[in-house]
């Protein structure tokens, strides 16, 4: 399963992408300002709500499965010591809360990606950041969103190609080496082909972007985003 835009008519789909960007920024700031279990519990409800508002469900988070082992391992690594007491619970707890914050951010990001077409993201950045810098950032975001799903599919294809010829019986490190080499080759090839496809269709730095407009539903969500940002600033300062 790939984490990418899914057409729909959910609340999140109807929101202006700038609203969703503000909520993401506010949420990220709040997550790093409110680090207590109680604060994170409130943010958990918000993160779950954002995924629900995008018509998503926990299955969507399967796209993050490669990040989850790192998030789970972080508290163990942070808590471990080379001598007695061998494991410090307080350090592990701090790292676990940090990992959990990252997980919450990924949930909110999943809601955004699921409900926002690439060109809307590009338009939001282009409108928010003026001039060439905005155009440059918009193109960067658009290319990342276009390239990553393709690259991920190529990696999966490389893994399947290894498996169908008995490669699944090889040691893990050997499989990793094969897939890494094949994946790197495919990534370069894919970048070439994507570049050719964009060129064939007159890729432009300043295309006609979707019209963006705040609607009535945007205002309470904008207030939520601004509120999250404000509480984060107030807590930090």
């Amino acid at each position: 399963m790939t984490l990418e835009y899914v057409p729909g008519d959910s609340l999140a789909h109807r929101l202006d992408p700038r609203t969703k960007l503000l909520v993401q920024i506010g949420f990220a700031a709040a997550a790093y300002a409110h680090t207590t279990p109680r604060g994170l519990a409130v943010l958990t409800l918000l993160a779950g709500g954002s995924l629900w508002a995008a018509d998503g469900d926990p299955v969507d988070l399967w796209g993050y499965r490669f990040a989850l082992p790192v998030l789970l391992a972080a508290p163990l690594v942070a808590g471990a010591t080379l001598g007695t007491p061998w494991f410090r619970v307080a350090r592990a707890e701090t790292a676990a809360l940090a990992s959990y914050r990252v997980l919450l951010l990924l949930v909110v990001a999943a809601a955004y990606v699921r409900s926002t077409p690439v060109r809307d993201s590009r338009a939001a950045i282009h409108h928010t950041v003026p001039g060439r810098i905005g155009a440059f950032l918009g193109v960067g975001v658009a290319l990342v969103f276009r390239f990553l799903p393709l690259l991920r599919r190529d990696l999966l294809a490389a893994r399947e190609a290894v498996h169908v010829r008995g490669g699944d019986r090889l040691p893990v490190h050997e499989r990793m080496r094969l897939i890494a080499v094949a994946g790197t080759n495919r990534a370069f090839g894919r970048a070439d082909r994507l570049g050719t496809a964009l060129a064939a269709r007159c890729f432009a730095w300043n295309p006609t972007l979707p019209r963006l407009a705040f609607r009535r539903a945007d205002y309470p969500v904008l207030a939520l985003g601004a509120g999250l940002l404000a509480t984060a600033v107030a807590t930090t300062v």
Binding site: R119, A197, C202
Partner: peptide, 29 residues
Amino acid sequence: TFQDPRDQLVSATVGGDVAFGPENLGLPR
């Protein structure tokens, strides 16, 4: 059109992909 259409399609949806070229030409919405 390319030999493998997967090399050519750059958007997540059919409409978004078909609109990609005209958008780059800067045409009115």
